[in-house]
Design a protein around this nucleic acid. Structure first.
Lengths: 412, 412
DNA sequence: CGCTATTTGTTCAGCGATTGAATTATTTGC
DNA sequence: GCAAATAATTCAATCGCTGAACAAATAGCG
């Protein structure tokens, strides 16, 4: 029951058209088959005349295109289907992580049109240099996209750390970044994207948040509310409610890693005791499995762990089971609290999901009151390791779909 | 970042006026001093001409009234202040609880204009009979309100149990209700409220949810996002995000009582182990304090407990401290997850807040990562025991403020 | 092959709501 | 008593939606 139906600001004369552009475009994006103008009219409640006028604007602005007449039974003039354009605006996704840089381009329809991953240990690299490398890769991606008729209209950067609302990276412990003014550093390079009213040129956000958004956009029939858990060294949760990321009062939501699972248990670096991170963080799992803590990326350790588990190594299996149980205790609490019906295991957990899911489901079954009525789905993320970059680019593309007026106002 | 700015349905010609009516009325409601038309124009971005036209509609519909010219310094024609009308539409709040029936009427400004509490043990009473008594009391309240120029336009009923989306009470254990079709039972009585387009005649909801909404409306400068915890036999949380109650996918959010605080601890009726309810539920506190479990209402036991604590009884103090610590562990987890900055202790906890708050705050301080940056406020509810009834009535009144067009369309 | 029914999409006069400038209203300060 | 300042209203112009009529394109049927 959202009681704030009205847009935040004034509803001017022209807002009407803006809202209907968004409404119609949103329907086209959400439809499973290319809808006709008539379909849109009945779906939205607008008249066909209005829909035609709105669609004309969308076609002129390269936001949608007409598809071949869909074969359809019955009499009558055949409808022309409308689909999101594969040319026009697109989003740029960037990611700086411990052991790689990633860049990708996602179009309006959510298709990944370009993708580059540059593997390198970024920990010894100064932030400014890392960003410079990223800009270089992104420049090539932009040219590539341009050759396909795509115009980049905004960028989103995923980092493994806390980001404040100005885009400053306050703390990215595993990367060794502290108080890095990313927007200012990137402003020293030539702009990567075309400026479009209503679309921020650069958004910096936590990788867990953006990875969750990636999951939202690229599972066509997926749920609008779910919990996405990124298991890395820390454990971050992206909470998606009604198709929007819930960021909390200060933008620091999702710290599921410090939910207590053994309140009198091991001390945690957060100052508490028995936090989930101490039992289901990557380091905890790896050491519990008897692996020596590897020097370099978590990736390797995770892959090794999966191998061992695959081979039936009892230590690895026990470590995964214990971690899954701890995770399940925390997840059950979240599900009880928020009444979500889908949990996605992402990040390092994705590869370990076959062993983590059963104990998580077991804890949910025994602790969640309503689990009997309504089952809770727990599944691994479908996106690869660079989910955050894809989610970042997708969030930009999605913004265009949600607010097309800015793009249309750009060039006329 | 809500990406769904557009209203769900079509934006017709007339929607423009509807949206601006809501926008202007919302500003009047949110202002701390009666704004003038000129203030509203600058605040909303609309022209003064439009604001005048909109205000004229609101005045004609008895939704706002002009206050005496506010004394103001400087030259110029004095502004006429606009305030929410103290006549016109109002909301009816109803509550059935274990040991009382409550009815109240709240006007647009959020003022409680009428209040009746009928104390009685409702457990042996059949649901139909309880509702019949409630209707009788409500009828008197409606007549009382009518004499003050108020018209009831919707009712909300709070019950201590799970309610599905049809208004059916699936289970209210402490009341002994199961699958009670409240809307159908109430339909057998003459209607209590005038039908207004866009305002449901009856909403049935969980008391914890409605109590949380009560807190939202009646702390003028209060935060838009907070956690409201009702400590009764069970422990329920109302999660308010951006001024709206978060209900979850199926409407069953807020089950904070089953967050694990001692995962290998006491078994809980939910099937889990070590749930919060086992350590901070009213029964748990009362028995821990050495009080014999009293026959009747929890109220009495809570009051007795407060008395003992006031007098310095060591058992009572220890029981409250332990309960507060358990509560704090759970609350810290929620705050980490959702990044909320305000926690309200309501229901039975309100009276015990002086002893519960300190340990809760201590746990938050030690377990919440961001507590150092941004303090978390923990305070008792300011509403009385019948918070849910007030919140219920307030939610109806608030709906009129959020969607005034329906009321205006009513009589012309 | 031609006619009709059917559905899609466009055109156009009408209308409601906002806009911006001009106008009126009311008070303070000189 | 007059000018400056602020508040609120009036009014022609304009923007965008509506509803109905109209044009386009196809399947079914005799």
């Amino acid at each position: 029951m959202s009681l704030t139906h009205a847009p935040a600001g004034a509803v001017r004369q022209g807002s009407l058209r803006e809202l209907n552009l968004a409404l119609v475009l949103g329907r086209i994006a959400a439809a499973d088959r290319p809808p006709s103008r008539a379909d849109l009219a009945t779906a939205t409640g607008l008249t066909r005349a209005t829909v035609s006028a709105v669609v004309e604007d969308l076609l002129a602005g390269q936001l949608v295109s007409e598809s071949d007449p869909a074969p359809r039974a019955g009499a009558g003039r055949p409808a022309r289907g409308l689909v999101l354009a594969d040319q026009g605006p697109a989003g740029l996704g960037l990611e700086v992580n411990v052991d790689y840089l990633a860049v990708c381009v996602v179009d309006l329809a959510g298709q990944v049109r370009h993708r580059t991953v540059h593997r390198a240990d970024l920990r010894p690299v100064a932030p400014a240099d890392a960003l410079a490398q990223l800009v270089e890769i992104a420049g090539a991606a932009r040219d590539d996209a341009a050759s396909e008729g795509l115009t980049l209209v905004g960028a989103a950067l995923a980092v493994p750390g806390l980001v404040d609302d100005t885009g400053m990276v306050r703390l990215a412990p595993n990367l060794g970044w502290r108080d890095v003014p990313v927007p200012a550093l990137l402003a020293e390079h030539p702009p990567l994207v075309e400026q479009v009213p209503g679309v921020p040129a650069l958004v910096v956000d936590n990788e867990a948040n953006l990875a969750a958004l990636g999951e939202l956009h690229f599972r066509p029939p997926g749920p609008a509310s779910f919990l996405h858990i990124s298991g890395e060294v820390g454990i971050g949760a992206g909470i998606v409610l009604d198709g929007a990321l819930f960021r909390g009062v200060r933008g620091w939501s999702g710290e599921i890693g410090h939910l207590p699972v053994h309140p009198e248990g091991r001390p945690c670096r957060c100052g508490g005791q028995g936090c989930l991170e101490q039992y289901a963080g990557q380091e905890a799992i790896v050491t519990a499995a008897g692996l020596v803590r590897t020097e370099l990326p978590a990736d390797t350790a995770t892959a090794r762990l999966a191998e061992l588990a695959e081979a039936g190594d009892p230590d690895a299996l026990r470590a995964l089971h214990d971690a899954g149980t701890a995770l399940g205790v925390a997840v059950a609490g979240v599900v009880n609290l928020l009444d979500l019906d889908t949990v996605v295991l992402g990040g390092g957990y994705a590869a370990l999901a076959p062993w983590l899911c059963p104990p998580v489901l077991a804890e949910i079954a025994s602790r969640v009151l309503t689990a009997a009525w309504s089952p809770v789905t727990v599944r691994p993320s479908t996106l690869g390791a660079e989910a955050a970059a894809v989610g970042a680019a997708g969030s930009v593309a999605r913004r265009i779909v949600a607010q097309p007026a800015g793009w249309l106002a750009r060039s006329g």
